[in-house]
Every structure is written in structure tokens, then in C-alpha cells.
């Protein structure tokens, strides 16, 4: 799948933002005054910024409000609802913290649950697609949730939880990479099932001479040769380095900020791979053979 920068930015930043909002909503960190303004502001900026970035890849963003209508069937629509509800539910909690008061924990807890539900809805947009076997698995929501929680724990200053979650994330990443490599073959779609033709099938003439929307969007293959190195970067930066810093370095704000930055780099690498390595079954019609077998 084409790793569109807007979608990578959106999923990483808003995931981290909603993770931070969840931790703040749960009262895991209770900043007041200016500290509250900065932390809650960061959470809102990440979440809202990510949501705005997601509209950049729309063909007709002026109609985006229509995306709230189909929550009964569409994960994308549900994500719209949960994200807006989260931002609305947590607004009084944030304002109370900034102006020095505290609301009953029920308010924050409801908002926190909604924040995590938002991340879950985002992940299900991808996990629901049978056409992309690498995504069509519980590891997709697990990874998105784990990224959000790790980022949230780190940004809200929970070193212990942050370290444990980062390590869990690393394990999940490794497992998802390995499982994903065999996912396409396991799903059972081949050029034979795609065309219904018996025997060895190969394409002798493509339907068009240059790339079309399908090929640009879903048959992305550039850069896969670097996927081994990027996987190592993803695990190292998103998981191992931040975990080590949180466990062994004194928790100064500068150090924690640095750890969060490393985590963010790893998260971007992982999310780029999430798209770039995902193979869509439509590639079978174009005789684009799965490349995963040659990676590991």
C-alpha cells in the first residue's frame, strides 16, 4: 500500500495524542496551572493536528462532515465520532486542571475510555480489510493501542509504565513483522484464485502501459529493499532505546523529552513499514508477486 505521508502523520500523531489524553483523563498525571496548560495542550495539539492531517488525502475534504453519518457500518465514521466525543468530553477536565480545579474522576475516565476507543476505531479501519492480509489480524489493533499507550505514558511522565509498555510494544512489533510476512500466503489468494484459470498463470500484457490509480495506491513496492533495516530502526527507536532511557537514566524533563523523540522516530518508521510492506490482493491481477517471502 502507498505510504501516504498525511496518513502516516495522522495515525502516529493522533495516536500519541489520544494516548496522552487517556493518561491525563485517568488522572495518571495531575498537572495544574501552566503545566496543565502545556500537557493538555500537547495532547489536544497532537490529536487535532493528526485529525487535520488526515483530511489532506481526501479528494473532496469540504464534504468531510458527511463522514459522521455511517457509524453503524463504517469504522472510519465511528472514528470520526469517537475522536470528536473524546475532545469534547475531556475539554472540561482540561479547563478545570488549567484553572486550578478538579472535576470528579468520572469525567476524565469517560474521556480516557473514549480516547482509547478512538485509537481502536482507527486501527480497525485497517484491520477490517480482508484484501490486505498483513493488516487483517488482531496485531493491528494491538499495535495501534500499544503505540498510543506507550506514547501517552512517556509524555505524561510515567517512566515505569512507559518502559514496560515500550518493551511490550517491541515484542508486538517483532511478532507482527514475522506473522505479517506469511500472512499473504496464508490468506490463500493467488493469481489462480484471482483469475480462476488453471495451471501456471502469468500476465503477458498489462491492461495499460503506465501506472494507474490502483498501482500507485495499492501496488507500492519502492523501498521494500530497506525494510530489514527499517524494522531494526523501528524496534530500536520505538521500543528498546526509550525503554532503556526510562529505566536507567534519571527522569529529567530533557531526558524524557529526548526519549519521547526517539520513540516518535521509531513510530514513524514502524508506521511507514505498516503501509509500505502491506500487500493488497489486487496486485495479483497485475502479476505483482508477494515480496514478503524474499525479505525474511
Amino acid at each position: 500500500m502507498h505510504p501516504a505521508p498525511s496518513v502516516i502523520l495522522f495515525t502516529v500523531l493522533s495516536g500519541m495524542g489520544f494516548g496522552l489524553l487517556a493518561f491525563l483523563g485517568l488522572g495518571a498525571a495531575q498537572p495544574l496551572g501552566l503545566a496543565a496548560f502545556l500537557l493538555w495542550g500537547l495532547g489536544y495539539a497532537l490529536a487535532v493536528g493528526g485529525l487535520l492531517a488526515s483530511t489532506f488525502h481526501l479528494g473532496n475534504p469540504q464534504r468531510a462532515l458527511r463522514a459522521f453519518t455511517q457509524w453503524r457500518t463504517s469504522w472510519l465514521s465511528r472514528e470520526g465520532w469517537t475522536s470528536v466525543l473524546t475532545l469534547l468530553l475531556l475539554a472540561p477536565v482540561a479547563l478545570a486542571a488549567i484553572f486550578g480545579g478538579l472535576l470528579p474522576p468520572m469525567f476524565g475516565a469517560t474521556g480516557a475510555a473514549m480516547a482509547l476507543l478512538t485509537v481502536y476505531c482507527t486501527s480497525m479501519i485497517y484491520a477490517q480489510l480482508r484484501t490486505v492480509p498483513r493488516w487483517n489480524h488482531w496485531t493491528t489493533p494491538a499495535l495501534f493501542m500499544c503505540f498510543a499507550l506507550t506514547g501517552g505514558a512517556m509524555l505524561s511522565g510515567h517512566n515505569g509504565a512507559g518502559a514496560i509498555l515500550a518493551l511490550l510494544l517491541g515484542g508486538l512489533l517483532v511478532f507482527a513483522f514475522r506473522r505479517g510476512d506469511g500472512a499473504f500466503a496464508d490468506a490463500g489468494s493467488t493469481i489462480g484464485t484471482a483469475t480462476g484459470l488453471a495451471g501456471q498463470v502469468r500476465q503477458v500484457a498489462p491492461p495499460h502501459t503506465s501506472e494507474n490509480y490502483l498501482m500507485k495506491e495499492m501496488i507500492y513496492r519502492v523501498g521494500r529493499k530497506h525494510s530489514r533495516r527499517l524494522r531494526i530502526i523501528a524496534v530500536l527507536f520505538a521500543s528498546l532505546l526509550p525503554a532503556a532511557i526510562q529505566l536507567f537514566v534519571p527522569p529529567l524533563p530533557v531526558v524524557m523529552g529526548f526519549a519521547a523523540l526517539l520513540h516518535l522516530i521509531g513510530a514513524f518508521a514502524a508506521r511507514w513499514l505498516f503501509f509500505a510492506e502491506a500487500e493488497h490482493v489486487v496486485g495479483l491481477y497485475y502479476d505483482a508477486r508477494p515480496a514478503a517471502a524474499s525479505i525474511s
Binding site: 479528494g59 473532496n60 468531510a64 472510519l76 480489510l129 493488497h280 489486487v282
Partner: peptide
């Protein structure tokens, strides 16, 4: 009513949908 998000094209196994 289409916002051009492209998710339907992702969901189709047959490449039947193309964004204009």
C-alpha cells in the same frame, strides 16, 4: 456525497474502483 477517502477502493479485492 463522496469525500474521496479511497477506503472503498482498498476494500475491493478486484481493483474495480478508481479515484478520478
Amino acid at each position: 456525497a463522496c469525500i474521496g477517502c479511497g477506503l472503498c477502493a482498498w476494500a475491493c479485492p478486484y481493483g474495480a474502483r478508481e479515484m478520478d
